[in-house]
């Protein structure tokens, strides 16, 4: 009986060990490449939402932590100060993740010096292709967030349209917008960074 159980257990354990070894090898090879690509994608997204900026400077960890605390549910993973050629502050870039249908939808938002939304873009998402991904492809959907004036509130964001059939995905964008308004109000303004 004992030997019979072992006869079954050993192949399973060996298979799992071999699989784990193979996967960790693959991970070791690909992880730096994936991280570099994520970084490049993030930089490209920041450039696209704040085309006038020359450099982006991450805010300190304490500020980021207080932003996260103010926002609550969404994930504020990075805040950048956008600087022009002379090192003058011209706006902010925010990387915010909100829960959609298939995990977090990571977005990058650009705010100008007055807190107006210059542009926004979706960095990564795992929404259902053809349904949830319409938050990216539907003409006019992301555009309606563009140009929200400085100091916009949750109420302003909730007035904007959602996409029927992609409610949870649209809600991720909406919550992302709300998070941005909260960060602007509670952190950037409070820190005296706003003109």
């Amino acid at each position: 009986m004992k030997s019979n159980a072992l006869r079954l257990i050993i192949p399973v354990v060996l298979t799992c060990m071999a699989a784990a070894a193979g996967l960790s090898a693959t991970y070791t090879i690909t992880a730096p490449l994936i991280a570099a690509q994520d970084k490049a994608a993030e930089e490209a997204a920041l450039k696209s939402v704040l085309p006038e900026a020359d450099a982006f400077e991450a805010v300190d960890a304490a500020m980021l932590a207080s932003a996260q605390e103010a926002v609550g549910d969404s994930k504020v993973s990075a805040i950048y100060r956008a600087l022009d050629g002379n090192g003058e502050l011209i706006g902010w870039g925010l990387k915010v993740g909100s829960r959609g249908y298939g995990g977090y939808v990571d977005m990058v938002w650009g705010l100008d010096r007055d807190g107006k939304v210059t542009d926004l873009t979706i960095l990564t998402m795992n929404e259902t292709p053809g349904l949830g991904t319409r938050i990216k492809t539907e003409p006019g959907f992301l555009e309606q967030y563009r140009g929200l004036p400085g100091g916009f509130t949750e109420k302003d964001v909730k007035k904007l349209d959602m996409i029927s059939g992609a409610t949870k995905s649209s809600r991720a964008v909406r919550n992302s917008g709300i998070a941005v308004s909260v960060v602007y109000e509670a952190v950037l303004k409070a820190a005296g960074e706003v003109r």
């Binding site: 006869r7 079954l8 192949p11 399973v12 699989a19 193979g22 996967l23 693959t26 690909t30």
Partner: peptide, 29 residues
């Protein structure tokens, strides 16, 4: 080498590993 009583779990581990490899490789390259 695979005993028939535990073949399904072993198949799943093998398949899931290959899929993860594909996933990581596509993401990286």
């Amino acid at each position: 080498l695979i005993p028939s009583q535990v073949r399904i779990p072993i198949f799943i581990v093998i398949i899931a590993s290959f899929v993860t490899v594909v996933d990581l490789f596509l993401k990286a390259f």
